[in-house]
Design a binder for these strands. Structure first.
Length: 216
DNA sequence: CTCCCGATAT
DNA sequence: ATATCAGGAG
């Protein structure tokens, strides 16, 4: 996409939502790490439903270790991939205690050493907790970037690099949230709602979906 | 590349 | 019935 269109693309999303935030619920940075780790291939709504009770009981890595593997599984049974996620969250909590004094490191390379925390999760934590200009490319951003032509790429890393290189400075902090929310509610995987899309005229995906009255 | 895996929308 | 959901590890 051309430079002026990229600027216009973000300017319009920003106008609709000046201060976008994650929709995952959390009370501290440790809980943010856990919530994002649990969110893989699952909806934010489903994760929030499970963490509401969990986070009342567990606010620190030590409290998670005390809860134990089976106790954690009981809380997150309703989330997909819960066996792997439970093991990772316990292991991640133990590592935070052993190597980081129970604190979450404010550094992407250190975050990535935590079990269940890959580049995307680390980028989310760096942005949401520490204000870093990171672009956490998830399924939504990968789709929106490719479909619209804003940031095409064959891999999530390629899309991330493109976003990092081309995103104008006024938008760099919030860009990834604008793109996720846009993908979640308008540029949806199954049924994109182009008729109410604020950037449809900038989008290479020319599929003109019907108006809502005749959409279904 | 495959496996992990429940809830929800279509 | 099947696709999709804030991916990561082996």
């Amino acid at each position: 996409m051309k430079k002026d269109d990229i600027f216009e693309f973000y300017a319009r999303l920003a106008a609709d939502n000046p201060a976008p935030e994650t929709e995952l619920n959390y009370g501290n940075v440790y809980q943010l790490v856990v919530a994002v780790a649990l969110s893989a291939q699952s909806t934010d709504i489903g994760v929030n439903k499970a963490t509401r009770l969990l986070f009342e009981q567990v606010k620190t890595p030590q409290q998670m270790v005390d809860l134990g593997l089976d106790g954690l599984k009981e809380h997150i049974k309703t989330i997909g991939l819960y066996n792997n996620k439970a093991k990772n969250v316990i292991a991640l909590s133990e590592l935070l205690i052993a190597d980081y004094g129970g604190e979450v490191p404010a550094n992407r390379d250190e975050l990535t050493k935590l079990p269940g925390v890959g580049r995307k999760t680390a980028n989310v934590v760096m942005n949401c907790a520490f204000g870093a200009e990171t672009f956490a490319v998830d399924t939504h951003i990968f789709r929106v970037g490719n479909r619209t032509g804003l940031a095409p790429g064959k891999t999530v890393l390629a899309v991330e690099k493109k976003l990092e290189k081309q995103t104008p400075s006024p938008f760099r902090v919030h860009a990834h949230h604008w793109l996720i929310l846009h993908g979640r509610y308008i540029c949806k995987a199954r049924k994109p709602e182009c008729w109410r899309c604020p950037v449809a005229d900038l989008c290479r995906f020319k599929k003109k979906t019907p108006a809502p009255a005749s959409a279904d």
